[in-house]
Design a protein around this nucleic acid. Structure first.
Length: 584
RNA sequence: GGCCUUGUAGCUCAACUGGAUAGAGCACCUCACUACGGAUGAGGAGGUUUGGGGUUCGAAUCCCUACAAGGUCACCA
């Protein structure tokens, strides 16, 4: 449930509600609050109440209703007034009210501690399911950034969140990798980047197996792979020993990437750890008669729901991915007593999750409808689709490295002020690269595909991470320079320019954007908001001067407003897991 | 073939979930700099929101339909 956290909107909603009573129209304050929107232009007012929906009940034209409502409106507090604009009853707020009610709170930080929701479910968010023995590619980054931002947005919105991941450390891909490494590979194991090297082994295994399909080797290969899997399952033998060692190489590689991205998980659920329990669970429900046997496999018949047959145990008796996800869901709710369970997984898994959720329901699992699959579209490159089995991928750490190098070069070419130490340059270059990559991906709706083109993202023009970083740095630089002139008491009323008003209103909507972004699973709403805020401020910057404002009061107010923009930028980028540089 | 997603300026995307004149960024053309950091700003041009119906005061948004792109539909994970 959302809290009506905007005090100004709350007062307007209340006033409208009591005005509506004069026309025998009962509406909850919540309803009115939700109807209040933003006029397309500040000249029309700052808040809008559309009267169309009342026309039928009141048998009157919307403009007449707006006029009647205005007449029936109780007295508004100082600084608030109503304004009739056709079928809309709009409201105007002066900068003094916005400043006192919201800017002050942004500056002292209390705004960011507002209660935004109430009685919301404890939520688990599972994301970034990496595979060991496979390379981490740019596509995994989208998942990771999306999940990480979502967690930050949820927590900010007031949800208690448990973050988790479900890495694939068993299965045929692992077997193929180990098989190739043990029987075919002649290269020495490298000293570093072993996780990436394993990915290459996996890709080579795949192409060799494909090559030998249809030859006399096919049968032999299959038998050898079965042997690998058997050893892994039993937990003994040379392949099992090799698995333990190589698995760790991959994990080390993952952790490098997560450290770079600043991502951590409250819980790592390993596939290898749910494997045997998932088989037991499936057998148990087979015995109960809820699951069925079909052609030697065990599964659930979901034909009547249009979902086909959901296989859980293969004819060799081993569990497949669906079985593991069932067991995993059971554990999540049991281990953490969460009430909502979000999976950030690409859209290819849609059918899989529909089957899993439907199966949970058949099992009588009370939380089955509390599971949500956040499906997102893929990242491709100009070369086409990525696939680790094809080996046509660029390891993420290489991409990151290239972007950091580029960022550092740009800093050296463009920055002003003191010379840069090596340490500061490295740190800042890393921040800029994170911004470029994370913002570049998060600004898109999850449902839309992304084409990653390194050169295009390197241009650093327009709607990009570096643009936001630059705006932040520029404002900060100004605030620092004028820090001594910052006054305790700000007279917000002197901010009278349209551009100033637009900025104040934009700042005031930050919390609503954060809640929407969380509840709609769309971090791009926050990304777009921050970009719009920067555009507004930048336009103000070129039209008006802070330093050379006409009066000291105006200078102080503009400085305070600038400080508020900088604070919101930093906070908002933080919710996208993007750090900010001090200078660049 | 069934199901899911998507279709908006030349290109890449927005549009506060049904509201006021559909907005940004690239690219293109004009302007504005011995500046508060030009990694900028202002302006111009660019639209039958894939086509066709429907719902209503009102549709890019909801419904139907056709088309196009992508995904998916039992021993991969």
């Amino acid at each position: 449930m959302q809290v009506m956290h905007d005090k100004i909107k709350l007062e307007l909603a209340d006033a409208l509600r009591s005005a509506l009573k004069h026309f025998d129209t009962e509406m909850e304050t919540e309803e009115v609050y939700a109807l209040l929107s933003v006029p397309p232009n500040v000249k029309m007012g700052h808040y809008a109440f559309p009267c169309f929906s009342l026309a039928k009940a009141l048998r009157k034209a919307p403009p007449a209703i707006a006029a009647d409502l205005q007449a029936a409106l109780p007295a508004l507090s100082e600084g608030l007034s109503s304004k009739l604009v056709g079928p809309y009853l709009n409201f105007v707020v002066n900068s003094q009210v916005l400043g006192q009610a919201i800017m002050q709170a942004i500056l002292d930080g209390s705004y960011f501690a507002s209660e935004l929701t109430r009685e919301v479910p404890k939520t688990m968010i599972e994301f970034s399911q990496p595979n060991t023995h496979k390379a981490l590619h740019i596509g995994h980054l989208r998942n990771t950034f999306l999940g990480d931002a979502l967690i930050k947005l949820y927590r900010y919105a007031g949800y208690e969140v448990v973050s988790s991941t479900f890495p694939g450390d068993v299965g045929t891909h692992v077997a193929k990798c180990l098989w190739y490494m043990e029987n075919k590979n002649e290269e020495p194991v490298p000293e570093s980047r072993r996780g990436i090297w394993l990915g290459e082994m996996y890709a080579k295994a795949n192409s060799l197996l494909k090559e030998e399909t249809g030859t006399e080797r096919e049968e032999i290969n299959r038998a050898e792979l079965t042997e690998v899997l058997k050893q892994l399952e039993k937990g003994e033998g040379k392949y099992y020993e090799l698995w333990k060692e190589t698995r760790q190489w991959s994990i080390d590689g993952m952790k490098d990437a997560y450290n770079w991205a600043g991502v951590s998980f409250d819980q790592w659920y390993w596939e290898s750890e749910v494997d045997s329990d998932s088989v037991k669970l499936a057998r148990e429900y087979l015995a109960k008669g809820i699951f069925i046997e079909s052609e030697g496999t065990v599964g659930v018949d979901l034909e009547d729901e249009g979902l086909g047959y959901c296989m859980l145990l293969k004819s060799d008796g081993n569990g497949n991915y669906a079985a593991k996800d069932i067991e995993l869901a059971r554990r999540k709710f049991a281990d953490y007593e969460v009430e909502k369970n979000i999976y950030v997984v690409d859209k290819r898994q849609e059918h899989h999750f529909q089957q899993v959720f439907a199966t949970l329901k058949r099992m009588g699992f009370e939380h089955a409808d509390k599971c949500y699959h956040l499906k997102y579209d893929f990242v491709s490159t100009s070369e086409g689709m990525l696939a680790s089995r094809k080996g046509n991928i660029q390891p993420v750490m290489d991409i990151i490295e290239a972007m950091e190098q580029h960022a550092k070069q740009e800093i050296v070419d463009h920055s002003t002020g003191d010379a840069w130490t090596e340490e500061e340059l490295n740190r800042t270059g890393s921040i800029i690269a994170k911004g470029a990559l994370k913002y570049g991906m998060l600004k898109y709706d999850p449902a839309k595909p992304i084409v990653f083109d390194m050169d295009e993202w390197m241009k650093w023009d327009g709607d990009s991470g570096p643009y936001l970083h630059y705006q932040y740095v520029r404002i900060n630089s100004l605030c620092k320079r004028l820090a001594e002139e910052m006054q305790e008491n700000v007279d917000w009323a002197v901010l009278k320019e349209d551009k100033e008003m637009e900025i104040l209103l934009k700042l005031a909507s930050f919390n609503q954007v954060a809640v929407n972004a969380a509840q709609q699973y769309r971090p791009n709403l926050m990304a777009n908001y921050l970009f719009e805020l920067c555009k507004l401020y930048s336009s103000f910057w070129s039209a008006h001067s802070v330093k050379d404002a006409a009066t000291d009061e105006l200078k102080t107010a503009r400085l305070a407003m600038s400080q508020a923009v900088s604070t919101v930028l930093k906070k908002g980028l933080g919710l996208l897991a993007i750090p900010v540089p001090e200078r660049m």
